[in-house]
């Protein structure tokens, strides 16, 4: 197995191994969460595992990530996250103080997101059989608004809104893990997005003006939009100049030969909003601390279904593809 870096290879694994085995109408939607209707109540349900080196980094740690990652996946269905479970795999030798720090961080993160951790499990494995600490969180939330938010609802005409600067988390982890010192310090954007989503949903009493919500984590904005475009069989056109990237992140990416559009985020969301409501939603987002730098970065189109294009700063049109693993030079 060599499917670590996300993007196309992971997508292949899911397509070829997991989907055929388990397929059912809910799973086949391939959203970041399942929406279940139980006794007339719509619930969002999701699970995620967290593996990160180093476990502590500027702007967060593995514990905060584990809470907010799952909270965000629930929020991306328009749900109000309620309860979480957490399962820990601890490597023998993990300093108890580190574990305390992680747990304290999880407590604070849950409080910040307004969720309760209600059940859990812990296993300890021999040294070398794990990497310090792995956390799996599962979450459940309730969808109160009469909304139907899903990747397959993306529709030509929709505006694509991005909630803020991209690439902060991925570049922070990169710099910490490799001990690289960039021009200026970068911090992870790890944050719970349920508050921002609630604000967005209350922009108008009308329902159904937000078609799709996604948090562009692994694989970044480009991979996430590609998934939506392929799923809904629509095209997308982005405007490079409109995409918020910090100079520090841009500079660090340039040196490393990375593209910020493929770098992970942990506190950002992409929203596909009906054109008539896009400005109003954007305004509402900008009033929220996590959406201050939100921007309309493009739109959904009918042409070139399944493909995401970007108008570049110099006026060309680049095809944004799913990442293919390592970054190999193409220039001959």
């Amino acid at each position: 197995l060599g499917h670590g870096s996300g993007g196309k290879l992971t997508a292949d694994l899911i397509d070829k191994i997991f989907l055929p085995a388990f397929h059912n109408p809910i799973l086949d939607k391939l959203d970041d969460q399942a929406v279940l209707t139980i006794g007339g109540t719509r619930l969002a349900f999701t699970t995620d595992s967290f593996v990160v080196t180093p476990i502590f980094f500027p702007g967060g740690d593995i514990g905060r990530l584990a809470i907010h990652g799952t909270v965000n996946d629930l929020a991306m269905s328009g749900a109000r996250p309620l309860y979480l479970s957490a399962a820990f795999i601890l490597e023998e030798g993990l300093p108890v103080d580190d574990l305390r720090r992680v747990i304290e961080s999880m407590r604070a993160a849950a409080a910040e997101a307004g969720v309760q951790l209600v059940t859990g499990d812990t296993k300890v494995v021999n040294r070398g059989k794990g990497d310090q600490i792995f956390i799996t969180t599962t979450g459940i939330g309730v969808i109160e608004h009469n909304v139907s938010i899903s990747a397959d609802r993306a529709c030509p005409g929709d505006k694509i809104i991005l909630s803020g600067y991209i690439g902060d988390h991925g570049m922070t982890i990169m710099s910490q893990r490799e001990g690289l010192e960039f021009e200026s310090a970068i911090e992870s954007d790890c944050a719970p997005l349920n508050g921002l989503v609630t604000a967005m949903l209350t922009t108008s009493p009308a329902n159904d003006f937000i078609h799709t919500l996604r948090d562009p984590t692994r694989g970044g904005v480009s991979t996430t939009l590609n998934e939506i475009a392929k799923h809904a069989n629509v095209g997308m056109v982005l405007d490079e100049r409109a995409i918020p990237v910090r100079e520090s992140v841009k500079g660090a990416c340039e040196v490393l030969g990375l593209d910020p559009l493929y770098v992970a985020n942990e506190g950002k969301l992409l929203a596909l909003v009906v054109p008539g409501m896009a400005d109003a939603v954007l305004d509402r987002m900008r009033q929220h601390p996590l959406g201050q730098d939100a921007a309309i970065i493009g739109e959904v189109v009918e042409t070139h279904p399944g493909m995401v294009l970007m108008k570049t700063e110099i006026g060309g049109t680049r095809v944004l593809d799913v990442m293919f693993g390592e970054q190999l030079p193409r220039i001959c």
Binding site: F182, L256, Q327, C332
Partner: peptide, 24 residues
């Protein structure tokens, strides 16, 4: 100088590098 040091670190620790036998 910061860029130089970063690339130097990338080369010495093989971060985002690939081996090449390219004549170009």
């Amino acid at each position: 100088i910061k860029q130089f040091n970063l690339v130097d670190a990338m080369l010495s620790r093989r971060i985002q590098t690939v081996q090449t036998s390219s004549c170009g």
